[in-house]
Structures are given as structure tokens and as C-alpha cells.
Design a protein around this nucleic acid. Structure first.
Lengths: 225, 225
DNA sequence: CAACATAAGCTTACGACGTAAGGAAGTAAT
DNA sequence: ATTACTTCCTTACGTCGTAAGCTTATGTTG
């Protein structure tokens, strides 16, 4: 079997930038960004660390590439929806992407070295506002306001020491027990009578703030015409 | 001179946690958080790196302490203002603090190991909403919404490769020149006709989004009574 | 003052990290 | 078959956080 002379017959798939990037993302998803080292990534790919430098310029380039890949996962705002519905959908999709890849939140390829997916995404968001009747200045304001909220929410979410509802209950109980209730009465009240109530899940707060922002933007856009 | 037998007469001020923390903050402010190493911090304090461990448990403890110190710089919401004015003032103060110490944005002592200043700050913010007539649930929503916006805005601001108006103009010009305008028409338009206009300064966008959020919250609180 | 306990500081060392430099081996084009 | 070019590996350097164990100040008690 396997008698053809020409085949190398080894499943040694060659490396390429895409494989490096996506393995790095899987690693960061699974073990956190601090566990993503060049040596560990090489190991995962069956290769020495230095071989990776044939496909990425350096670790920063790797990280930027990863972030751009995350931006590529976000649904672009649809042309067929109103600006408000389109922005709501893409904002939820944005939030979902950051939940899947929380390590991407602080990395910020955008601003310094935005990749093509990042640029396309931003372009389409601004275009959605413009086509929705927003002036250039208002579109800039809206872009900044909505994305700030999404980033910030994702950051707070990431920093919480719990994710599921059960974890939340356990952690909140612990924190409440350690909290000097006389010194921080409002924090204690919030923890006991809100966070510890059954069904509480911080992620649910996302759409509240998002809708606040979108409603406010709608009023701004109507006020200016 | 200095003949009293008892004096050691050396200006070798002893180390303490506060001096360590504030020197670390100054270093991070001046050279960025990545330049803050235990050895460099020790050098700055005239001490070997290992000596610092008499005053901080480890580097994480140092970073958490630094973040809590930043929270201590934020003006607490005033009791004598209405909730909206109080929140606006403290939000601007929050933003100012994060501008002075941009390295604090991703570090997040809150959530995992909030320090006393962080706790007090959060308690007072929640208290301001509660005393303004917000239900417990609405106060939680509002807290999350406003702080998410502030954090996210600060993060975007930090990631920009420019700060002053002149820098902005220079960088925008460069970016615009590299930008394929046919592929990203809205981004190109925004850069050319808004960012590059005289007087543009991204920081000014902060209060726009903040007021959107506060106005929306005001409507929410009125709807529920 | 002396004797001691405790805290603050120093020295050395270890195992990670990112990555520079240069050699070896595989692949493709002449 | 020769050449050129990628790709991958080996070795090595400097830097990081910090464990272990010391020496030296400082403070307390007689």
C-alpha cells in the first residue's frame, strides 16, 4: 500500500499564516492570552517556536492578526434593515464575538495597525449611520459612543470572576460575606437583593445599555433634521 | 556638623507600600506599563528588586494597588447635587483619572480583588442612583451602562496613536494616504472631512456619549414611577 | 547600655519569555 | 543536475518575576 514512489506519504501539513493565527486563537480561547507563548504555540503546531517567525513578523503581529480575525467574525450591519435595527444586530454580534474571545478586548489592533476586517467593519458601521441620515459629525459621535459602550461592557464582563448563574451566586455569597456592610451599604444591598436573586445574569445587562444608547442616538438624529 | 551621636544622618528614607505604589504609578505614567518592571522600580527607589517584596506580595498585588490608588483620585459623586449632575461630574473625573493613568484601564482590580477606594467609589455611585429614585434593578443597569461607556471610551482613546490636535492631523493625513478610498469610502470621508477639520479632538466626543447615556437613564427612571 | 527579636534589605539562582543569528533540509524553477 | 528560495531547527542572549537564604538595620525589653 501507498506504493506510489512520488508521495511523501506524511501528513506533515505545512504551516501558513492562517493556521498559525487560528491555532493561536484556539489556544487563547482555551487557556487565556497569558498562556499563549511562541513556544507553546509552536508545540501545538508540531514546530519549534522560531519557525513561527516565517509566518508572523513578531508576537505583536501575531496578536494583531488574531484581533483582526475576531473582527472578521462580527456580522456586518445589514443594508436591508433600518440603521437602528442593523446597529443593534451587529452590536449583539460584536458582543458575542468578544465573549467568545475575551482576550481580544485589551489588545487593540484598531487605532494603530487595523487589519482589513477591522477596517471593513468600521467602514460599514459608519456607512450605516450615514445612510440612516446622520450628519458626518453625528455619525462620528454615534460610532464612538456605541463602540465605547460595547468595549467597556465586554471589559467589565471579562473582569468578573464568574460567568454562569451558579458561579455568580456562589461568588456573590462569598463577596457579600467579606463585605463590611456598614461601610458599603449600597453595595451590600445590591449584592444581596439583586445579584443574589435567582435568574440574575450580568450578561443580560448588555442590551439595556445598548438600547439606551441607540434610543438616545435616534433622538439626536431626529433633533437635527 | 550633625554631631549628635544618635542620628544616622543619612537621607535614606525607608520604603513603605505607599512609596512603592506611587513611584510605580509615576513610572507607569511616564514610560508606560510595560516599562514597569520590579528591577526598574527598585532602581527608581534606590533598592534591589527583591526588597520590594517586603511591601507587595507580588507584581499582581502591586498592580492592583496601583489601580485602587487611581480609583482614589476620582471625585466621589456629591450628595448635594441631583443624581444626574453628580454622576456627570464624577464621570468626567473618572475619565480624567483614566487619561492621566491610561495603563490602569486594562488592569481591572475591580471584580477580582477590588481595593477599598474602588469599593467606596462603587458604593457611592450606586447610592447616588438609589437616592435619585432608581429601583435596585435600574440602579444596577445604570451603574453597568455608565461605567461600561466610560471604560470603553478610555480604551479607545488609549489605543489611538495620537493625542494632541496636531498629532491627530498628522496621523490622519498619513492614514488617509494609505487608505484605499474606494474600498472604505465612509472611513475615508470621515477622516478627510471630519477628523482632519481644524479643531477636531477625539476627547471631545466623551461628553456626547455620556450625555446620551445619562439622558436615556433619566427617561428610564421617569418611566418607572 | 546590652541582648535579642523582628523587619528590611541584599545576593544568588532558576525557569520562563521574545527573538537574533546562522545552519540544514525540503521544494521549485531552470 | 544545478541553482535559488523558502521553511524549519539549533543555539544563544538578555530580560522578566520571584524562591531561598543571607546580612544588616531598627525597635523592644531588660
Amino acid at each position: 500500500m501507498a506504493s506510489l514512489g512520488k508521495t511523501t506519504a506524511e501528513p506533515r501539513t505545512r504551516l501558513n499564516r492562517d493556521r498559525v493565527l487560528h491555532t493561536a486563537i484556539a489556544l487563547a480561547d482555551a487557556n487565556g492570552i497569558e498562556a499563549l507563548t511562541m513556544r507553546r504555540l509552536g508545540e501545538e503546531l508540531g514546530v519549534e517556536a522560531m519557525s513561527l517567525y516565517n509566518h508572523v513578523a513578531n508576537k505583536d503581529d501575531l496578536l494583531n492578526g488574531m484581533v483582526d480575525a475576531v473582527f472578521g467574525e462580527i456580522d456586518l450591519p445589514s443594508h436591508s434593515d433600518t440603521w437602528k435595527i442593523a446597529m443593534r444586530k451587529r452590536s449583539v454580534s460584536f458582543h458575542d464575538a468578544l465573549s467568545r474571545h475575551p482576550w481580544a478586548i485589551g489588545l487593540r489592533d484598531s487605532g494603530t495597525q487595523p487589519g482589513p476586517a477591522t477596517l471593513r467593519h468600521h467602514d460599514r458601521v459608519i456607512g450605516t449611520f450615514r445612510n440612516g441620515g446622520f450628519s458626518l459629525a453625528l455619525a462620528a459621535h454615534a460610532f464612538s459612543a456605541v463602540d465605547s459602550y460595547i468595549y467597556g461592557f465586554a471589559m467589565q464582563e471579562k473582569s468578573l470572576p464568574f460567568t454562569t448563574e451558579e458561579e455568580t451566586a456562589v461568588m456573590a455569597q462569598i463577596m457579600l460575606a467579606q463585605l463590611p456592610a456598614d461601610e458599603y451599604p449600597y453595595l451590600a444591598e445590591l449584592t444581596a437583593n439583586h445579584v443574589l436573586q435567582p435568574g440574575y445574569n450580568y450578561s443580560d445587562e448588555f442590551t439595556f445599555g445598548l438600547d439606551c444608547m441607540l434610543d438616545a442616538l435616534e433622538r439626536e438624529s431626529q433633533a437635527s433634521d
